[in-house]
Design a protein around this nucleic acid. Structure first.
Lengths: 340, 340
DNA sequence: TTGTAAGCGTTATCAT
DNA sequence: ATGATAACGCTTACAA
């Protein structure tokens, strides 16, 4: 690996120079579109370039100039619809600035995640957007940043590091969900949270708690369960919830992957409580009943992060900035069923 | 843009060498994990690396070695769940080979797509996986490939170029769908195809035709419509179909984006014909009735493409290879409703 | 085992 | 306007 199957060395500027019978620096000037070259020579060089099928070696170029015209995005799971949409937004903005986007999944394992992150940083990109692992101490990034690499975080603040960040009002959105359910007459509202220790899930649990509190409802710990995204796990959790002496009549779920799993699980256990999920998802309107969600727009988040990053790349100094994006309750019906 | 906000030159191997009081090559050896360095010096170097926060300049490294340890994926729309899953598979395999993945969306415009593709290729990556634009003549890639860049296509063959490719049995899958519907008693089966001129959609229409033919059913052109993915467009198309003197009792839809749009549209027009969609999608089981689909597994496709590419990168010569992946009919019920 | 030196393909500096 | 020439930071013979 590593060595190409080859078949023929690529032409370099030297080859072009020889062919066009000009000096190396003239070729460089023409190729980089610099002025101050006689039209005749420009033509000669362009012709040689065409004939040889020359194209500039980006690595030599980068080594010399220092910029790779590439930004990186490191997320836990690039295939998650939420992150792919976020990445698409970053890409759209990057493309407008003639930057390429390098993506890497950091996975679920924080150790592996740090390794991936370090590798990406080793590329001396123009900047990086990172969805931080909650467990990882990100202090090691400080040096990188001081060396000139702009880094913008997304979704959750990195432990051990102050930085530019784009966040969503998780508490507020969750509280909205609770209010919505209470307005429909529910007092026993379960909370299904994704894994424990997840920053966003915890913030949303906090919002669930404050939402209940502001409605004067006591939080019953028995109604709060933590699950993985597997349907079977959710089935189990639901069984336990509904087996309670005073079972929930409504559910709040902290993210869309989990919401989908819970919906599948509910079908299996044959229940359909009122329900609001954090994160909107495709086809929510086709559920029975259509699922009410707290929507955070991944495109806006990615766009904001990219914008922040591009400003830093352009040389913006100053204190770390924090962008807070709001959420929007999309009422579709699943939250409005009255308790039996 | 381009010039970093800087703040301090990064340490180079030279700095590390000076600090550790060893030669440059010793540092190189330690950093690249080569054997043949005395434990004492290894420790000295590692210490200097840590103290200086040194990390290798990948560009110099690449310039010297020729490999960027990066592969590219160019797809029309990286945020499409199908492609993000495919990319995730590529990434998984790449990560095992210590390669990074550069992704770029080529968009819907073929001209822009070619530009993006050229830019990606300019990076002298170790290899590229491409979802070809149907309109673009890919002959220009031949030179690139001869220069040693392995390229693997996915989903549809590039115009004007023979190449390694991973494909799906579109015809067979579509025919399966038709057989399934016929078995449930349907004779009037509509076909809703995504846009016209799309390679995959056309192959699937072909399969629809051969499926009908092998069942001895005459293909009625009035039952075949072409739509965009917008729900409104689908509503319009459905209205026309159901207004026919002899309307369809079942529908075959050529891809999942369109299937979702059609499902939303069906709800709006208040119909629920039998239905089979090409491409599986999340939540299909929660539709009413659960949607039967012809599943092609994006992970397998990405995995196969990555494998092909890695073999080429490793030096495999020989004729172009074509991997054909099968499809699987996932019966969930929507195809089994008998005609009224 | 270790260090010296010659590139990799560019761009920038400096004469011309 | 043009062309030598010296870096950029790294790897790798080759010598010691």
């Amino acid at each position: 690996m590593g060595d190409h199957t080859d078949g023929g060395r690529r032409p370099t500027m030297k080859d072009v120079a020889a062919r066009a019978k000009v000096g190396l620096s003239t070729v460089s000037r023409v190729v980089s579109g610099k002025r101050g070259v006689s039209p005749a020579k420009v033509r000669a060089v362009e012709r040689a370039v065409r004939e040889l099928g020359y194209s500039r070696n980006e690595f030599a170029h980068t080594l010399r100039t220092g910029s790779a015209r590439t930004i990186g995005v490191v997320a836990t799971r690039v295939s998650d619809p939420f992150y792919s949409e976020l990445i698409a937004a970053v890409e759209a903005r990057a493309q407008r600035h003639d930057l390429l986007v390098l993506v890497a999944s950091s996975g679920d394992d924080p150790y592996e995640g740090e390794r991936v992150l370090r590798r990406v940083l080793g590329r001396r990109l123009d900047g990086v957007i990172v969805v931080a692992h909650e467990e990882t101490d990100h202090a090691f990034l400080a040096a990188e940043r001081e060396a000139g690499m702009p880094i913008v975080f997304v979704d959750r603040p990195p432990k051990g590091l102050a930085a530019d960040i784009v966040m969503v009002d998780n508490e507020g959105g969750a509280a909205d969900a609770v209010h919505h359910l209470v307005a429909a007459g529910h007092r026993r509202i379960g909370c299904i949270a994704h894994a424990s220790g997840r920053y966003t899930s915890e913030r949303r649990q906090d919002g669930y708690a404050t939402g209940l509190a502001s409605e004067g409802i006591r939080l019953d710990p028995a109604l709060v369960v933590t699950v993985e995204d597997e349907v079977e796990v959710c089935v189990e959790a639901l069984r336990e919830l509904f087996a309670l002496p005073d079972p929930p009549t409504a559910l709040f779920i902290t993210n869309s992957r989990t919401t989908k799993a819970v919906l599948k699980a509910l079908r299996l256990v044959g229940r359909s409580p009122a329900l609001v999920g954090f994160d909107d998802f495709d086809l929510a309107e086709l559920m029975h009943p259509p699922t009410t969600t707290v929507s955070q727009d991944p495109w806006s988040i990615g766009d904001a992060a990219a914008q922040l990053l591009l400003e830093r790349i352009a040389g913006l100094r100053g204190p770390w900035r924090r962008v807070d994006l709001g959420t929007r309750l999309i009422v579709r019906g699943s939250g409005e069923q009255a308790p039996e």
